[in-house]
């Protein structure tokens, strides 16, 4: 019923993976620098190319043969019916699928020419380059708001000195559009915030470790419309400095905030999810190439 139309598979020619400067930095997590400018080849803008990626849970094939270009410094939206593997693919990008026993991914996902899926690349290093924001806001309850922002550094045992810490916290909270709301209660627990504020705190926490990419899995689905609007605005703003990939069930949201939309679907329950089509959001929403995409966007799906 659905024709699989992979978008342009640009084969990014990489000078032998780990030999590139970014590859070297990613392979050794301990030497990973947290400098303002991420290491990488000149002109790196955090673009990703996903090539022939399949994801398995044990023997169950959940996502099959996805090839997709994700532009740097832009918002890419993953849309599609429930169970088509959006979350699975998203987690494969920063290798969070490895946390689930039995889960594995095949294929290659390159970030500025470095294959994140390669064996010799440390998943810990990948995750510090590719951050993640979850569906349910999950600030660390045993930490203050301030420490939540610094959490990535604190966990690694790299808590910055007082003044540097204050400066970083202010910058990240400003960036997450949260500073004005919390600047007087930085020492309070992250639990004391509203759901929308907590989610923005989680975004501040994710960008404090200076990733190139921020992945968001339905970041607004647990939030009220006002908070959702705040996060949407924030995502647009983040795309100036980060590559943002967001999973959403909200078509209007995908249309409002994304530059590129990728539509996934599955033939029937139990079948693997596949990429149906992807392209500039305007084109996907106004003139999709595949009928299934139009049906889904117009709410005529299932």
């Amino acid at each position: 019923m659905t024709a699989t139309v992979p978008t342009s598979i640009t084969t990014t020619t990489t000078p032998a993976g780990a030999a590139s400067p970014a590859g070297a930095a990613l392979a050794a997590s301990e030497t990973l620098t947290l400098a303002a400018e991420p290491p990488g080849p000149p002109g790196a803008v955090g673009s990703m190319s996903i090539t022939d990626v399949s994801c398995y849970y044990g023997s169950h094939l959940a996502v099959a043969d996805v090839s997709l270009e994700i532009p740097g410094r832009a918002v890419t939206a993953f849309i599609g019916p429930s169970g088509c593997g959006k979350s699975t693919l998203l987690r494969a990008i920063n290798r969070m699928h490895e946390v689930i026993p039995g889960a594995r991914a095949e294929g290659s996902i390159e970030l500025d020419g470095v294959d994140l899926c390669a064996k010799e690349v440390d998943p810990v290093a990948v995750r510090s380059k590719v951050g993640m924001v979850f569906q349910k806001p999950n600030p660390f309850p045993a930490m203050s708001i301030k420490d939540n922002v610094l959490a990535g550094l604190i966990i690694r045992g790299q808590r910055p000195r007082a003044s540097a810490a204050d400066e970083l916290v202010e910058r990240c909270l400003e960036r997450a559009h949260l500073w004005d709301e919390v600047k007087d209660r930085l020492k309070k627990s992250g639990d004391s915030l509203s759901g929308g504020q907590q989610q923005r705190l989680c975004i501040a926490r994710a960008i404090a470790v200076q990733p190139d990419v921020v992945l968001m899995d339905e970041p607004c689905s647990a939030l009220d419309p006002i908070s959702t609007l705040a996060i949407e605005e924030l995502m647009r703003d983040l795309a100036r400095d980060y590559t943002v990939v967001v999973v959403t069930h909200n078509m209007a949201q995908a249309n409002r905030i994304s530059d590129v939309t990728a539509f996934f679907s599955l033939a029937s329950a139990g079948q693997p999810g596949r990429l149906v089509e992807s392209g500039p959001t305007g084109q996907i929403f106004s003139a999709p190439k595949v009928a299934a995409t139009r049906d889904y966007i117009e709410g005529r799906f299932g």
């Binding site: 969070m96 810990v124 979850f134 999950n138 045993a142 604190i154 690694r156 990733p211």
Partner: peptide, 24 residues
């Protein structure tokens, strides 16, 4: 969730246990 959030920040599991799980 908290373990996942810690891991997603790019830190090894034992550090997530020490800095997130145990304090919580």
């Amino acid at each position: 969730d908290l373990r996942e959030a810690g891991l997603a920040l790019g830190s090894p599991r034992w550090r997530v246990i020490r800095k997130i799980v145990l304090p919580t």
